[in-house]
């Protein structure tokens, strides 16, 4: 208990661990990527989960009907001509 810490040593102890992510990233970036991080706390309340009520606006349908279908019709007609021309050859 008597030994007072040498100046400079203090930061070492801290740095080695707190800098860990930066430290290990380059060497093991590949595997490290998927690793779930430790939570800073063991448990928490509902209020701390921050998920908006209902998930309707988080996921949406995979198609988009808003897009002008006239454009597409025109494109399709154009392509159709090409395809049919190919067939005749």
């Amino acid at each position: 208990m008597s030994a007072s810490p040498a100046p400079g040593s203090v930061s070492t102890v801290k740095a080695t661990f707190s800098d860990k992510p930066a430290d290990t990233k380059p060497a093991a970036a590949l595997e490290e990527d998927d690793e779930f991080e430790d939570f800073p706390v063991e448990s928490w309340t509902q209020e701390e989960t921050d998920v908006p009520a209902g998930n309707t606006h988080l996921w949406e349908e995979s198609w988009d009907d808003d897009e002008t279908s006239e454009d597409f019709s025109a494109q399709l007609k154009e392509e159709l001509k090409k395809v049919e021309a190919n067939k005749k050859r």
């Binding site: 208990m1 810490p5 930061s11 102890v13 801290k14 661990f17």
Partner: peptide, 17 residues
């Protein structure tokens, strides 16, 4: 095995005790 930020020399003092 990590010294908390509030006592950065905790480990060292423990070892030297």
């Amino acid at each position: 095995p990590i010294a908390p930020a509030s006592q950065p020399d905790k480990l060292r003092r423990f070892v030297h005790s």
